[in-house]
């Protein structure tokens, strides 16, 4: 290969390395990893969706006991397969012994949700205590996520936990599905967001499942920022309070992003911060004139671009 020849000629690699790299490049197998995982994922999705539909369509012919039996069977088969292939618990990342185990666990979790929904719909299993129906998967999935070291199940657990508290937390739903005009919901969201961020920070400090930190911080931080912004928009009497809170959160996340080189949080903080500042500017009446408003937007966008360019540079110098 011309490149390797060039490196050899320039004395950057040894003749032995040249031979080795040439052989390694020629012998390197074609990886089907991503594609097979996509097939597994699609299979699990289809199977759990199919099971969900199946039980409601065929109740008359197969009967309640058979339906419950089938769901319990699939759930336990998934959990059992995952359990059999799971090495001992550790606070550091753990790889299951077979790549299928993670998907078996996911299948178990999803069919558990189908089973629970079915029990509630058919037998009012939890009666009027809807909270319990969200609390049980939250606790179960949280335990499973830690034992099996599965980030996907952790995110399901956090979603269930938020649902139990009455808040929609997944990135898109947090923006669109929460009615923060209700004060109790706003405070719940603030408390839950702060709690998740605190747990994430505590864990990463103590070195427990450090790779879970991102999920905690992104779910919690997003909820916290959405709720703060909603408070800013809806609580006119407490506007300075929410403005200060937003400023604190934005600076906190930017500092965290720079320190940890986790630019997701930089982007998140910049977007929410920009929305808050722009709201305050327009609310103050400075930019009531259309020309002035556009002029403000041009200037502020330029400012954000300048900030992003420089924050990235300073962050990459540190590394």
């Amino acid at each position: 290969m011309p490149l390797l020849d060039e490196l050899l000629r320039r004395g950057l690699i040894s003749a032995e390395q040249h031979r080795y790299f040439t052989r390694a490049a020629a012998a390197k197998p074609f990886s089907l990893n991503g594609e097979l995982q996509a097939v597994l994922y699609a299979g699990v999705l289809l199977l759990s969706a199919g099971l969900g539909g199946l039980i409601y369509q065929n109740l008359a012919t197969i009967g309640h006991q058979a339906v419950i039996g089938l769901l319990v069977g699939v759930t336990f088969a998934g959990f059992y397969y995952a359990y059999r292939n799971q090495p001992a618990f550790s606070v550091t990342p753990v790889e299951p012994r077979t790549p299928l185990a993670a998907y078996a666990l996911l299948l178990g979790c999803l069919s558990f949700l189908v089973l629970e929904g079915y029990l509630q719909a058919q037998y009012r299993f939890f009666g009027p205590r809807h909270g319990l129906a969200a609390f049980i998967p939250a606790v179960l999935f949280l335990g499973l996520a830690y034992y099996f070291d599965h980030r996907g199940v952790l995110s399901l657990a956090l979603t269930a936990l938020a649902a139990w508290a009455g808040v929609a937390i997944t990135p898109l739903d947090a923006l669109t599905k929460n009615d923060f005009a209700v004060p109790s919901l706003l405070y719940t969201a603030l408390a839950l967001g702060a709690g998740l961020v605190a747990v994430g920070r505590y864990q990463s400090r103590r070195g427990i499942k450090k790779h879970f930190t991102f999920t905690y911080l992104s779910f919690g931080g997003n909820l916290l920022l959405v709720a703060t912004l909603a408070g800013l928009f809806t609580r006119d009497d407490q506007r300075p309070l929410y403005a200060a809170l937003l400023a604190g959160l934005v600076f906190g996340f930017i500092a965290y992003a720079r320190r940890e080189h986790s630019f997701f949080f930089l982007l998140m903080a910049v977007l929410y911060g920009y929305a808050g500042v722009t709201y305050l500017v327009f609310r103050s009446g400075i930019a009531d004139n259309f020309y002035v408003a556009l002029f403000y937007l041009v200037l502020s966008c330029g400012g954000v671009i300048y900030f992003l360019l420089n924050s990235h540079k300073s962050a990459s110098r540190e590394s």
Binding site: L45, G52, L106, L110, L113, V114, E116, G117, Q120, H130, G131, A133, A134, P137, R151, G152, L154, S155, L156, L158, T159, A160, A163, W164, A165, G166, A168, I169, T170, P171, L172, D173, L175, T176, K177, N178, D179, F180, A181, V182, S184, L185, T188, T215, S218, F219, A230, F233, T234
Partner: peptide, 29 residues
């Protein structure tokens, strides 16, 4: 992947309690 998973399945989770949420009065969203 984890975020996508939660987004996909958030509708499968059981309905939470109606925590005093009522229609009307929503300035936001």
């Amino acid at each position: 992947e984890a975020g996508l998973l939660a987004q996909t399945f958030s509708n499968r989770l059981p309905t939470p309690p109606d925590q005093g949420t009522q229609f009307g009065g929503g300035d936001f969203g």
